[in-house]
Simulated assay, not measured.
Amino acid sequence: MPFLRWLKIGADSVAVLFLAAMFCSFMLQIIFRYLFNHPLSWTLEACLITWLWTVFWGCGLLLRDQDHVRFDILYLAAPHKLRRLMAGLAAVIFLVAYAVSLPATADYIEFMKIESSSSLKIRLDYIFGIYLLFVLGVLGRYFWRLVQIIRDQDFETGISHSAEHYSE
């Protein structure tokens, strides 16, 4: 498990670098616009690109299930067997949806190599390529969740309240 811990630390560090780059770009824009009256065109683009990468990197690789927003009132009110069925069905739906979309998504991202960003001149396939990593992360997460559900292991990690808690 130490290898997985180092992987997590590395992925967290990359997210921190994205946020730091976005913050520095944002601060440069403020300084140049308001102190020197000379706005920089590339800083807005840098902020947008680093924000895009931060969101997809974080959601695809870093956030745990309990970190995502959930609408689970009915799920929590259901008995364990029904929750297991609901979770399994949701995992299968996500797996199928993302797997079906993967070839067309990859094809479109590959097509975008003909375009570049306006200020930084970065090819758009490089910019939007993070979405493929996000999809692969989601597929891996839901595949592992489905395995846990089938084995009836602890697939509800992060559920802090049981249905009994709501009825008290």
Rank of each mutant, 00 (worst) to 15 (best):
T50D: 00
D67I: 09
W57R: 09
D65Q: 13
Y75N: 08
D72K: 11
D65E: 15
D65P: 08
W42T: 02
L76F: 03
G58I: 08
L74T: 05
L44S: 08
Q66N: 03
L62R: 02
T54K: 07
L44P: 00
G60M: 04
D72S: 11
L52I: 14
D65L: 15
W51K: 07
L63W: 09
R70D: 12
Q66F: 12
L44N: 01
T50Q: 12
C47E: 14
D65M: 12
L61I: 09
D67R: 06
R64T: 12
R70Y: 04
V69N: 00
T54F: 14
L74G: 07
L52V: 06
W51E: 10
L52T: 01
D65I: 12
L63H: 09
T43V: 06
W42G: 11
L52P: 03
C59T: 02
G58L: 11
F56A: 04
L52K: 11
T54Y: 09
W51T: 10
R64E: 14
E45L: 02
L61N: 02
D65F: 14
W42I: 12
R70M: 11
L61P: 01
I49K: 02
E45F: 02
L48A: 13
R70I: 11
G60D: 01
L76C: 15
L62G: 06
L76G: 12
Y75T: 10
V55I: 15
A46L: 13
V69W: 02
W57V: 08
F71P: 00
L44Y: 03
C59Y: 07
L48H: 01
C47T: 07
C59P: 04
C47L: 06
V69F: 09
H68F: 15
G60L: 00
R64W: 09
D67T: 01
C47N: 11
V69A: 05
C47M: 13
I49C: 02
V69K: 02
G58R: 07
R64I: 12
D72T: 12
C47W: 11
T50V: 01
A46E: 01
D67F: 05
W53R: 04
W53A: 05
C47P: 00
T43Q: 11
S41H: 08
I73E: 13
D67Q: 14
V55E: 09
R64Q: 15
R64P: 03
T43L: 14
F56D: 04
G58M: 08
Y75K: 08
H68S: 04
L44W: 04
C59Q: 07
I73K: 13
T50N: 13
G58C: 13
V55Q: 07
D72I: 14
Y75G: 00
S41N: 14
L63G: 01
L63P: 03
A46I: 05
V55W: 06
L48D: 10
C47S: 07
V55L: 15
L63F: 12
L48T: 10
D72R: 06
R70C: 10
C59S: 05
W51L: 15
G58Y: 07
A46H: 03
I73W: 10
L74N: 01
D72L: 12
H68D: 02
W42C: 07
D72Y: 14
L62T: 05
L52R: 00
